[in-house]
Amino acid sequence: MTADDCLSPLPVGPAGLSRRAQSFVEADGIRLRRRDIRRHRDAWIGHGIPDAEIERAAAFQDRWGGLALPPAPFYEGGPRVLDADCPEGSAAEGWSFPAGDCRVSMAYGFVIGPDGAFGIDADHWTPLHASTAGWVESLALAAHARRWAKNVTRLRGEAAAALDLGGYEPVPEVQGVTDAWWRGKDSLVALYRGEAVGLDAPQCLEAHIYGGLDAWGLHGG
């Protein structure tokens, strides 16, 4: 990445986010030069990719392309930059497209699935959040929780699986599928199940518990 690639901090985040996520994107996000993937339309159609799938990837690029956000607290930080590329798949299995390159060498990539879910392509497709907006909301919530929590506890494997979430309620804006956030009386819990499911590796299950939160820490933003 060069200085010429960097445009500016985002004056306005993508529409449809919560106030907390909007503020997070505007304060901490950088919009890099967005690639025009529509210029590949004819070549991709020539390889049998449906026009509707090309347009779906292009719509992702219009909304999210070039957006660089701070590293996620799991998944080795998530995509370096949100960036669509050539769709892959079939009419029978459905079509997906990459969501952006990894920050480090990894055993899986980040993908937008046939139904628009944001997930990982590991040993098999594993949706993490029902949309890219849900992924961004989860990043914003993690940043918010780290700032306001008086203590943070991390559990892995069996300890995370045994975590009792009775009395907690799901946080809807993250649109959790395999991953989810939960809100309790004075704590927030992030449950990262994607690697455990996608790699068939239960030892990779991880929970982050943000404790000692007041009303603003739980609901602020």
Score class of each variant (00 low, 15 high):
A72H: 10
A57F: 05
A15I: 10
R39E: 14
V25S: 03
R20Q: 11
P70A: 09
E55K: 10
S8W: 07
A68W: 12
A84T: 06
D42L: 12
G16H: 03
L17I: 04
A15V: 14
R56G: 04
L67G: 07
E76S: 15
P71L: 10
R34C: 12
P50M: 01
A15H: 14
R41K: 14
F24Y: 15
W64K: 05
G46C: 02
G29Q: 05
Y75P: 00
E55V: 10
S23K: 13
F24C: 09
Q22Y: 00
P9K: 13
D28E: 15
E88F: 14
V12I: 11
P14N: 09
V81C: 09
L67I: 15
A91I: 10
E53A: 06
H47M: 12
W44Q: 04
P71Q: 11
S8R: 12
G89K: 02
A15Y: 09
F60P: 01
Y75T: 11
R56I: 03
D36K: 12
S90L: 10
Y75D: 15
G65C: 06
G65E: 03
G66N: 02
A91K: 14
G29K: 08
A57V: 01
A59L: 12
G13W: 08
L67P: 07
L82Q: 03
L67S: 09
Y75S: 15
P73Y: 08
L69W: 07
W64A: 02
L10Y: 01
R56E: 09
A52V: 11
R41V: 06
I54L: 10
F24I: 08
R19F: 00
D28S: 13
G89V: 02
D62F: 04
C86D: 01
W64E: 02
G66W: 01
S90I: 02
R35M: 12
P50A: 04
D83S: 14
G77I: 07
D28F: 11
G16Y: 09
E76M: 13
P9M: 11
A68K: 14
G89E: 01
I45S: 14
P50I: 01
D51G: 06
G29V: 05
P73G: 11
E76Y: 14
A59W: 05
R41P: 01
V25A: 08
L10W: 01
P79S: 04
S8N: 09
I49D: 03
R63W: 08
A58Q: 10
G66K: 02
P87W: 05
L10I: 12
L82I: 02
Q22N: 08
R80S: 13
A59R: 15
D85N: 13
R80V: 06
R38W: 11
F60Q: 05
F74Q: 15
R35C: 11
